[in-house]
């Protein structure tokens, strides 16, 4: 009976081991990705870059650490399916432009921020949440919890798809805003592209600042 139990335990461990290792690998890969991103941004902040460098570096950061294709598809919501290839391509270009313009105009905020890693939580097989705290040395903002949602699809490199600050997901917010614009305009994907083009122009023109 004892031998049988041992055999069963060994058998179960043999089955479970590869899965445990895979889970650990996903956790390590996700943590490493976020750490590299934070180090990258800190390096950029310390180099006192000009507007053009910020723009170019942000573009490189999106390419290197984020799954932009997945982000764009998620942000467009259900309308993505019915959009033409041309519309999808223009949407991706203008949405990226909004992100770059925001990074350019709001880069100063990063100068006083510090990030401290806290926990890593796997969510299902394709997602890992890397959790940490942002501390503002200037004291302007209180400490905030940040969750990085990392896509860990089997066979693909880990990539960040969302940043959640104090329970507010950047990507869910974008999706709900984009869906509202499409629905307000009778389901027109074209209207969303126009609204984003206008938004990018407004941000660049410094209406906010």
């Amino acid at each position: 009976m004892i031998v049988l139990r041992r055999m069963l335990a060994v058998f179960l461990l043999t089955i479970a081991m590869p899965h445990m290792t895979m889970a650990e690998e996903r956790i390590d890969e996700s943590t490493e990705l976020v750490n590299r991103l934070v180090t990258h941004i800190q390096g950029l902040v310390n180099s006192n870059p000009d507007a053009m460098t910020i723009r170019a570096e942000t573009d490189a950061v999106i390419h290197q650490y984020f799954d932009y294709d997945l982000i764009a598809r998620f942000a467009a919501g259900n309308a993505w399916r019915s959009a033409s290839d041309d519309q999808r391509s223009r949407y991706k270009t203008v949405f990226r432009e909004v992100m770059l313009s925001l990074a350019e105009t709001q880069f100063d905020y990063f100068k006083t921020l510090e990030y401290k890693a806290k926990a890593v939580i796997p969510k299902g097989r394709k997602l890992v949440i890397v959790s940490g705290t942002i501390h503002d040395r200037s004291g302007q903002f209180p400490d905030a919890t940040v969750n990085w949602r990392v896509s860990t699809k089997p066979g693909k490199p880990a990539r960040i798809i969302d940043i959640e600050i104090e329970n507010i997901s950047m990507l869910i917010t974008q999706q709900q805003e984009h869906t509202a614009i499409i629905n307000q305009n009778g389901g027109s994907f074209e209207a969303l592209i126009e609204a984003l083009t206008e938004q990018a122009n407004d941000i660049r023109s410094g209406k906010f600042n």
Partner: peptide
């Protein structure tokens, strides 16, 4: 900076 400030506020 929002394309639709109302929808963003709601979200």
């Amino acid at each position: 900076n929002s394309a639709d400030p109302y929808a963003r506020t709601r979200s």
